[in-house]
Structure formats: structure tokens, C-alpha cells
Design a protein around this nucleic acid. Structure first.
Lengths: 355, 355
DNA sequence: CGTATCTCCGTAAACGTTTACGATGATGTC
DNA sequence: GACATCATCGTAAACGTTTACGGAGATACG
């Protein structure tokens, strides 16, 4: 515990104004020839300070490069300018996409973000992470909860500051707001597209049922089929991985049960199953139409370019930040979910239309 | 400035111990029947406190759910338990991978991370972000600088706390340490693999020259070729996108200049060029061998499964965290870069070996 | 000219810790 | 039995802010 001991000196040889010790409000006051109270007032845009004095103080602040000490401010005001993000550690497309978007939005709104990721078992780690986040003085927390176990842990947790959860298709509870993209709609869009193309035997390569995304996408597929008076086809449940899809598709061709059309729960899933088909001369889209979900980078250059559904993470992040800020400030905001869009490419085609 | 006004009460109806106001060190002291000084001592594992007292205090802390106020601690010690991460906003594979890994490692080491991302123009935004990070009380900063403009901004910036940059192939300066994966080695590995397969006409679909990664991968390719006595083949420079690679490859087949083998600067690049070839009946690997870079999820299920080079982001994160912590504590640490590995799959094969 | 009002500014206390120092009682030593 | 030593604990000051309050001039009004 030797304290901070930067080799030599962190400021050595820099070209800018030397700032060995961080200047304080008192330094500013001294130079400007006013009391620290006055400086505090100009810092907080408070009234009761003459224009001339304000100018002078501002100038000094700029000159000596003064910056407010956030710890001190946080200590006395117990309010903060940062928001916490809790995520699972998974590097999967959805979570990472929202994470990045969230950070971007927060920054644009003047909030810093501190992110913590948790891993199994969630029961302890989630509460712990929430507390840690609270400690750092965040004003609110957004948790990205793709898997239902994690969401459950959040529901059971306790937190002083407002918590908002991004979990597709989960519902809000008194203490945690929920927000999400309307992925069920996305799934319906995908399935409807297949139906519109004249397919009747439409299978679903589902994602993990431990994920909200897996659940609602499957639900959307079923609903669309039901609404169209069709009976759901095969629905193997996997883990999002191309490997699983590959093996499963292989089994299908062995069993001669390859469907007319497949709605894959993710682009990665689609990738795996397309390869399995390709290896056995089953062509996409000539022999089977497939649509994915996610629109990952490169999916437009798959063989064939993939029809898929795209989520708008930026909009999602924007909205959920709005919701959280609303909760933090006690106002109510609109909470209609974001709608994903279908992007049609070459992996789907009309049923029974010989080339 | 209405202060925090959570609707109703954030703690309402929760099952856990009610914690309307956060308990302080004084509350603990009161209940335990000691002075706050003693509590502080047990908090910091200081000596001069009897085992019995320590036990009692610990118990009270657990009972009332006391947690140290970080702002207060930071204020008085001016040392912190969080590290800042500065990243560009790009959602590309490399940056995101390191970001996630960094967060994981930091958490395991007991540090919170606050991340800020910047965008063009870097000159101002970088200094600004560095300052903001400093304000939040981070003990050190790791910047993920994939593009050289951003790195330049960091070099020109000023910061009180130690700054470390993750930038492939860039060198350290007095005020900013640099660390990275040895991507040049990765590129050599890829190229050497092609050479070992008997190819002599080896092209490189380069990444962006505005990225360190693009530069060093190209450099590695050239170096490997030179060392083998071969002359470098074509080297179009792109932007990492499948789209660019697709168009460029198309041009190559039109010009009848398709090389024997291609080292693509990224898997996404490989994806685009493979599609262009596929559309014109040029088979991979039969007609042309291609190796990628990144080992993105799904690259093992491309058509064909892609030979590529994998970076170890976890190791990278671990090492760079080690370096930063070292700088923060004034000790010196080993700084040999991480070595990527080649993973051979089906997109490469021996030259001139008719099927 | 006295007093009330207003503008501007200074001052003290508080936020929740850590750290240095001093106080107390018990224990040991001669 | 006196004194030094030690273990244990309490106390005060400090960290850099914000906030509430009070005071000094200046201006207005009767």
C-alpha cells in the first residue's frame, strides 16, 4: 500500500501547463481574488455573482486548468453524473451491440458509464455488482440481461438507485423497469416473409431457451404461423452456435426431413445450417429458403447473402436511456418498444418456382 | 435541479433489510460501541484492534449492510479502485474483443472500469475524454487505439495518471506505455503457411492503412515474403469491409489476375472475396488458397471453413492490465507481446496439387 | 439623514472517510 | 512499587466541494 508512485513523474516533460497537483477551488479563489464560495457559485451557475467577477473567475479557471473534483462533489451532493451498466460477460452480438450503443448515448448526454459484467452463478454476482455500482455513485443502472437466470437475479436483488433492464419480452416489476426491442415482431416479420413467399413447411432453428431472445423469437415464429393457419414445423432448440446448427442440419438431411423454409434464430445459426446443406448439395435458396436474425457484419456476403432481421441498437439504447433518466428524475416516459426491420436478400425465394 | 426524486420510493416493498439512508462508518461505530476510528481500522485491516472488537465490528457491518462510501475514500486518499478505458466507438472485432476482455480482467482484480469512447476528430475529443476519466478518479487509463490518428492524439495529450495504449506495432513514449498483440507475427504466420504450402504468388487484401492493424499485418506479409525470397504480389488496400473485398476481387477476376493465394487482412475481408470468387466459379481452396485474420465467430462455418489467425484477447487484456497496474504502482513489468496463433482449416491447400 | 432593500460576496458547517497522534489501562521489569 | 512498554482505542484534522446563512456596501425611499 505504497500509494501512487509513478516512475519519475507523470507530468515530466509534457508540453502543456504543468499541473503537478490538481488545482482546487481554493487555488482559483486565491488567484482570482475572491472567496471559494464565489468560485463555487460560478461553477454552479448560481446567481448572486456579478458579471465582472464571473468573467474573472472563469478566466482563472481556464488559465490554470481547474477541474471539479468529482469525489468531493459526489460526497456532498450524493448525486452523480454517471450511470452503471451491468452486462453478462458474453461476447454475443446482441449484448455487445447494446452495450456499445448505450455507452455512446450516455456520453452524448453527458454521463460517464461504468460497466460491470457478471457471470454464473448470477444469484450472488448480480447483487454484488449492483452494490459495487451503487458504491461508485451511479445515478441509475441499466442491466443487459439476455438470459432469464440473470433477469431473475435482478428481480430478486435490492438496489437504492433506479434499475432498468433490457430483456426482450420480459415484463416490468415495481422495482425494475424493463425495456427491449420488439423481437417477437422481428420473428413474425421473418416468418411472415417466408409465408408470403408461399412456403407452408416452415421450421425454426431456435436459439437457447435460456435466453429471452431465444424464447421470444420462437414465440414470434409460432404466432405468425398460427395466425396464417399453418402448423409449426420442426423446431430444434440450440445454443446460437453455428456448430450446433451444422450438426442439427446434418441430421435433418440424413433423416430426409429438410423443410421448405427455415427461420434461423440468428445469423450464426443460419451460417452453420447453410454449410451443412451446401455439403450435401442442398442449395439455398433454390431448395430451401432461410432467414436469419441479427444482420451481423458480413451477413450480406454470406453464400448466399442472408435475408435477416436487423435490430436498431442505437434506437434501443436511446430509448432505454430515456427511460432510465426518466426514472431517475421521477418523470414518466413513453415506453413503446423499438421495431426491428426485415432485410431481404438472396437466401429466400418463392416456393415451387423452378429456376 | 430538483435532486433525485424516484417515484414513490426506491426501497419500497423490497424484502431485504430496509436501507433508506446508506449507513455510515459512524452508524457502525455506534452500534458496535466503538469509535469510528476503530471501524476504519478494521475496514482497512489495520493492526491495533483486538480480535474480539474486530469480530464485533465485522458482524455489525454485515448486519446493517454497511458499504464504504467510495467518494469519501477517494476524496481523502486520492487513490482509486477504478481504471478508465478509452476506446474508439467502432464496433469492430478487435476493439470490442479487447474491451470485453479488459473489463473482465479488471473486475477479477477488483477494479471497476469506466469506459468512454471517442470519435473523430480525435484531437479534442481524446484530451477531453482523458480529463473526464481523470475527474472520475481513475487510477490509470488504458486506451484502445486501433487507428493511428487516435494514437497521435493520445501522444499529444496530457494526463496526470498513467496512460497505456493498446496499439499494434506502435512504440512507447515517455508518457504513454504501449502494449499490443504481436500482429506482425500473426501476419507472418499466415503468409508462411501459404509459403509452406508451395504458393509463390501470394497477394494481400490489406486492411485500412489508417489502422495499426492494417499496417502491421501488411508489414508482416511483406516480411515473410521477403525472408522467403519471394516478391510480394498484389496488395490492394481497403477498409476491412466484405463489400470492398467483394468489389476488389471481382475486379481481379475480370482482369484475370486472380493470384494463387491470398492473405486477407481480416475474416470479413476474406468473406467478401470468397463470395466474389464463388460467383465466378473460382473455388477456394482448389483454385486459390485464402487465409483470414481474427477467427471471428462462425469463421469455422464459412464456405469453406476459414484458415485464419486467432488473437488471444484475454491474454492481451491480462498483460496490459498488468502493465498498467505496474505503472500505477511504480514497478516495472515484463512487456513482451502476446503471440497470435494460426488455425488451419479448409480454405488453404497445397499448390499445384490437382484434386 | 435614517432606514429598508437589494446585490454581491464571505464564512461555517457538513458530506464520510483516512491518518497521525495522543490517551488509557494492562502488563512486564527491575 | 515505580516506571517503561505495549496493546488497544479515541480524537482531531484534513480531503474538496456545496449549501445555508449572514454581513457589507450601494442604492432607493420616506
Amino acid at each position: 500500500m505504497a500509494g501512487r508512485a509513478v516512475p519519475h513523474d507523470a507530468n515530466e516533460g509534457l508540453h502543456d501547463a504543468p499541473l503537478r497537483r490538481k488545482p482546487t477551488i481554493n487555488d482559483v479563489a486565491g488567484i482570482a481574488g475572491v472567496s471559494f464560495g464565489t468560485v463555487s457559485r460560478v461553477l454552479n451557475d448560481a446567481p448572486d455573482v456579478s458579471a465582472a467577477t464571473r468573467q474573472r473567475v472563469l478566466q482563472v479557471i481556464k488559465d490554470i486548468g481547474y477541474r471539479r473534483n468529482r469525489a468531493a462533489t459526489a460526497l456532498v451532493t450524493s448525486r452523480s453524473t454517471s450511470i452503471g451498466i451491468l452486462s453478462d460477460g458474453s461476447p454475443r452480438f446482441g449484448p455487445v451491440g447494446t452495450l456499445m450503443a448505450l455507452e455512446n448515448i450516455a456520453r452524448k448526454k453527458g454521463y460517464a458509464t461504468t460497466v460491470i459484467s457478471v457471470e454464473q452463478p448470477y444469484e450472488e454476482s448480480v447483487q454484488d455488482a449492483l452494490d459495487t455500482l451503487d458504491d461508485t455513485g451511479v445515478g441509475g443502472i441499466i442491466v443487459i440481461a439476455p438470459v432469464v437466470d440473470m433477469a431473475a437475479a435482478v428481480w430478486n436483488a435490492t438496489c437504492r438507485v433506479p434499475v432498468e433492464m433490457i430483456a426482450a419480452g420480459a415484463s416490468s416489476t415495481p422495482n425494475v423497469f424493463t425495456y427491449s426491442e420488439n423481437q417477437e415482431l422481428g420473428a413474425r416479420l421473418a416468418t411472415q416473409h417466408l409465408i408470403d413467399l408461399g412456403h407452408t413447411d416452415i421450421a425454426h432453428f431456435a436459439g437457447s431457451m435460456e435466453w429471452f431472445d431465444g424464447r421470444v423469437r420462437k414465440r414470434g415464429w409460432e404466432a405468425a404461423l398460427r395466425d396464417a393457419g399453418l402448423t409449426p414445423g420442426l423446431c430444434p432448440e440450440g445454443d446460437w452456435s453455428p456448430g450446433w446448427a451444422y450438426e442439427t442440419a446434418l441430421q435433418l438431411v440424413r433423416d430426409q426431413k429438410v423443410p421448405q423454409a427455415i427461420f434461423a434464430a440468428s445469423d450464426h445459426t443460419a451460417l452453420g445450417l447453410i454449410r451443412a446443406f451446401a455439403e450435401h448439395g442442398i442449395r439455398v435458396p433454390e431448395d430451401v429458403s432461410v432467414v436469419g436474425f441479427d444482420d451481423i457484419e458480413g451477413s450480406d456476403y454470406f453464400l448466399p447473402p442472408l435475408t435477416t432481421v436487423r435490430q436498431d441498437f442505437t434506437a434501443l439504447a436511446l430509448m432505454s436511456m430515456e427511460v432510465l433518466l426518466g426514472a431517475m428524475e421521477g418523470r414518466d416516459v413513453d415506453r413503446t418498444p423499438i421495431a426491428p426491420t426485415l432485410v431481404v436478400r438472396d437466401s429466400t425465394r418463392r416456393a415451387n418456382s423452378p429456376k
